[in-house]
Design a protein around this nucleic acid. Structure first.
Length: 841
RNA sequence: GGGCGAGUGGCGGAAUUGGUAGACGCGCACGGUUCAGGUCCGUGUCCUCGAAAGAGGGUGAAGGUUCAAGUCCUUUCUCGCCCA
């Protein structure tokens, strides 16, 4: 449909015959540009020049449906960063792929009878189309999917590498079982005793599973946090999770004729003189053996098994003080005092923490204290409390104290250690424990080994076979991949892979006899622990990645993604790089040198989700206002790390400003027009522009896109003021071009269209603008005049004027003079070019 | 309970790191231009007093340091996250 040409200036400024271009119409200009970028491979990495290499990575999406606002946000941040880097002379590796294995696909398959593969690939295509439409400048030649055999072949290869490095264990343990997901989970996937995915209460089951020995790297994972540029809170979350503590293992003997002895781990060996009883985890083997004939104990065990770990570990509380323990029919001997102390089983001690047994010190541990009070056990004071400076506080009274003392103090009632500050006593006791052969000082970590077996089937099969005579044997690397059969029955309950009639049938790679494949798959966090390496050569079918490329590109220079991965993914990937380094496959110590966590996009204060029905999708916005408006709105709303409440943002405001940018570019700044306007007005505009170039560049370096946009808006405001004052020609063009260049990383379409119309080249190939410092110099500055710290006026003085000149000018200010007259000037503070403050009394 | 982070107009948020608090935008009010209009262009907008000039108050609360505090220190309240 033809729109009649209006006879105003708008139409005159258009270059083409199509009059509709006069109006900012993002829905018309964006799609052709987006397809051109993909068709021409515009953003494929080009290392031909001598540009500095930069690996920019954003967490690859999980294809659970179309893109959501969280994706749009992180990609907008990431793409602004990437496009800015290109303009500042970097060869940026900017890959894209999909984290495509996982339970949701399997659940969808079961519910709707679809194949998870089809479901996943359909979602991927939908997301890919949205990513292209929004103009994110990924290098599509790197594209990978973790569910492709060409990818998981190498996931399995890494499993074997770790296996040969001795980092894979098959162990029995009490594992976390999620009844909803019908699989075991890693510790990291259990939050407050619930499955982080399905929210089901996690059960403890004894099962034999595959583990990666991440604990072998606990110390290094902790120490190397100091070498990476990550947000402090992510580092401290990892530190907490790894949970290093120094303490001692001490052996206690059973007080009878047997040679039975038990090792406890304690972080407070200094309190051993206060150990008045001893506690075993109810499932402790020694207890099970010794209490086998006691029916009362069997009842107790039965009762304990019904309680979750959280319930068991919670501070006891008034209501059930007496129900949590069982007196055993034997005692223990405290090696330091030689005393016999009673032994209990109590559910607040867990079998898989420490050694499953503790020495109980009521005076120094709250749970021990409460248990002691509930069971009328002795509370023995072995510490005299002090404050942090070491000053003594009131001594503790074992009969009246109401909670354990966990603060600092000096030792009392502890034999030769009396009088020592507690840290000193701790060190001394650790030494003595070792000397006397009762134990040793140890470093303990909270971090557990990573359980990677999953009883699910939309994942990478674990490349192991179980041979009756040879035991579990690795599949030889040249037989990879162990492929998922394409005829799995996804409707069965339990694991389709385990239910498959022939998948498990194989022969032992060692003896050639009949053997069974492992029917579990790997945790999907295994897939995502190395994808940044595969991006270096996604189609190479001879190796996972070339070593020399890994040397050149790792670590990733800048990683962007959500803080929800602060522990899981980021810890696992760090472990992988360290383990692969030790196998000689990479040179780097860490995968991600710098990390940027974006905030969340919420709506009306709560998380957007399908189930809440409060979804705003990126497509809703881009279909109405275009991708540039969506991207600009997101980045303008707040700093990247902060949450955005979509109820508070205004796409129409951003759209309005972009329309203004459009109009100004078409109406003004024509090079044909002779330079016009008073010299001062021209100089003022140019100064405003060049000041902003400096400031915006700074904002980009700090990822502060919200203030960068604000300053670009200031340039357009200044341009309109200048235009009204009669400024025309070169200075206006310079201002408009500066906006286009510096807006290009944020709104890539409108800037591209306008730049091409004006200059015939791509704005994204231009160099980042540089401020001309000579334009920033000013003759006069406004200096604030304060009297007794209150602003009383403002005077214009020559820039760099010395104190006497400024003082004189300030005193001549009418308003300031009124207040100066009220007393005598005692002191003058002069901040050059900023402020002068008279202290009057 | 411990650790970390944050509290600034009606709203999102700014404040060269101690130097004019509220940039920029949204919203709102008024005026103009259009009136096909979710258009465009002005002006105003922290609170109180005032016609204005200006004055007083003001960054969760209370103290403190300083010529000067949103910014530094102490105490405290609220919220968020992580660990118990």
């Amino acid at each position: 449909m033809l729109i009649p040409m209006s006879p105003d200036a708008h139409a005159d400024a258009t270059t083409g015959p199509d009059a509709s271009v006069a109006r900012y119409d993002p829905l018309a200009i964006e799609p052709p540009i987006a397809s051109r970028w993909v068709d021409e491979g515009t953003y494929e990495l080009d290392c031909a020049g001598d540009d500095e290499r930069f690996y920019a990575l954003t967490m690859f999406p999980y294809p659970s449906g179309d893109l959501h606002m969280g994706h749009a946000e992180i990609f907008s941040i990431h793409d602004a960063l990437v496009r800015h880097l290109r303009m500042t002379g970097h060869a940026v590796l900017n890959p894209i792929g999909w984290d495509a294995f996982g339970l949701p696909a399997e659940n969808a398959a079961r519910k709707r009878g679809e194949n998870p593969d089809e479901w996943t690939r359909a979602n991927i295509e939908e997301q890919a189309a949205s990513i292209r439409r929004l103009g994110f400048s990924f290098d599509w030649s790197t594209r990978l999917h973790t569910c492709d055999p060409e990818y998981y072949r190498w996931t399995q290869w890494i499993f074997l590498e770790l296996f040969h490095a001795g980092l894979v264990d098959r162990k029995e343990g009490l594992v976390n079982w999620c009844p909803g997901c019908e699989t075991v989970l890693a510790n990291e996937q259990v939050v407050d005793g619930r499955c982080e995915r399905s929210d089901d209460l996690v059960q403890r089951r004894p099962l034999t599973q595959w583990y990666f020995r991440i604990t072998d790297y606990a110390e290094e994972l902790l120490d190397d946090l100091d070498t990476i540029d990550w947000p402090d809170r992510v580092k401290s979350m990892q530190r907490n999770w790894i949970g290093r503590s120094e303490g001692a293992e001490i052996t206690f003997e059973v007080a009878d004729d047997s040679d039975d002895e038990v090792v406890v781990y304690t972080t407070r060996p200094d309190t051993i003189f206060g150990a008045t009883y001893f506690v075993f985890a109810p499932e402790h083997p020694l207890v099970l053996a010794r209490m086998a004939d006691d029916p009362g104990y069997a009842d107790y065990l039965e009762e304990v098994s019904r309680r979750s770990d959280i319930e068991r570990q919670a501070t006891l509380g008034e209501d059930r003080r007496d129900k949590r323990g069982h007196r055993l029919d034997f005692d223990m001997v405290n090696p330091f005092t030689g005393e016999t102390i009673p032994a209990f089983a109590a559910d607040y001690v867990l079998m898989d923490y420490g050694t499953g047994a503790i020495m109980a010190v009521p005076v120094g541990d709250q749970r021990d204290f409460e248990f002691a009070r509930a069971n009328d056990l002795e509370v023995r004071v072995i510490i005299h409390p002090t404050d942090d400076e070491g000053n003594h506080l009131d001594p503790l009274d074992p009969d009246t104290m109401e909670e354990a003392w966990v603060g600092p103090g000096t030792m009392v009632g502890s034999g030769e250690y009396d009088g020592m500050p507690w840290q000193e006593a701790k060190a001394a006791i650790i030494d003595d424990v070792a000397d006397k052969g009762w134990g040793r000082g140890t470093v303990n970590f909270r971090l557990r080994d990573w359980l990677i077996s999953r009883q699910r089937s939309w994942g990478a099969p674990i490349p192991m076979v179980h041979c009756a005579s040879c035991g579990p044997r690795p599949v030889p690397a040249d037989q990879l991949p162990v492929e998922l059969p394409d005829d799995l029955d996804w409707t069965v309950s339990g694991s389709p892979l385990a239910a498959h009639p022939t998948f498990a049938e194989t022969t032992c790679p060692d003896c050639g006899g009949p053997a069974r494949r492992d029917t579990d798959t790997m945790d999907t966090f295994v897939d995502s622990s190395w994808y940044f390496l595969r991006y270096l050569s996604p189609t190479d079918d001879t190796r996972a990645w070339p070593r020399e490329k890994a040397g050149a590109w790792l670590p990733v220079d800048q990683y962007t993604g959500g803080v929800e991965h602060a522990i899981l993914h980021l810890l696992y990937a760090r472990f992988f790089v360290k383990a692969l380094r030790d196998r000689g496959h990479v040179a780097a110590d860490e995968p991600f040198q710098a990390l940027l966590n974006q905030g969340q996009v919420i709506l009306d204060g709560s998380r957007m989700s399908k189930s809440r029905g409060n979804l705003v999708r990126p497509g809703d916005v881009s279909e109405e206002y275009g991708a540039d408006t969506l991207r600009g709105t997101i980045l303008f709303a707040s700093a990247p790390e902060d949450d955005i409440d979509w109820a508070d943002v205004s796409p129409s405001g951003m759209n309005k400003w972009l329309a203004r940018v459009w109009r100004l570019n078409l109406e003004l700044g024509d090079a044909e027009v002779a330079d016009g306007g008073a010299d001062v007005d021209v100089a003022e505009l140019r100064r405003a522009v060049h000041q902003r170039i400096l400031a915006v560049s700074d904002d980009y370096d700090q990822f502060k896109y919200n203030t960068a946009i604000a300053k670009l808006m200031e340039i357009t405001n200044a341009t309109m003021d200048a235009e009204r004052a009669g400024v025309a020609g070169g200075a206006v063009r310079e201002a408009l071009d500066a906006v286009l260049l510096m807006l290009a990383p944020i709104c890539p379409f409108i800037t591209e269209e306008l730049w091409q119309r004006r200059h015939g080249a791509s704005v994204h190939d231009q160099a980042w603008p540089r401020a001309d410092e000579s334009l920033l110099e000013v003759d006069t500055v406004d200096v604030i005049v304060q009297v007794n710290g209150k602003v009383r006026g403002k005077v214009a003085v020559a820039s760099g004027a010395d104190e006497s000149v400024v003082e004189a000018a300030a005193m001549a200010d009418d308003n300031a003079a009124r207040f100066l007259a009220e007393g005598e000037v005692r002191k003058v503070i002069h901040v050059p070019d900023r402020l002068v403050n008279f202290v009057v009394a």
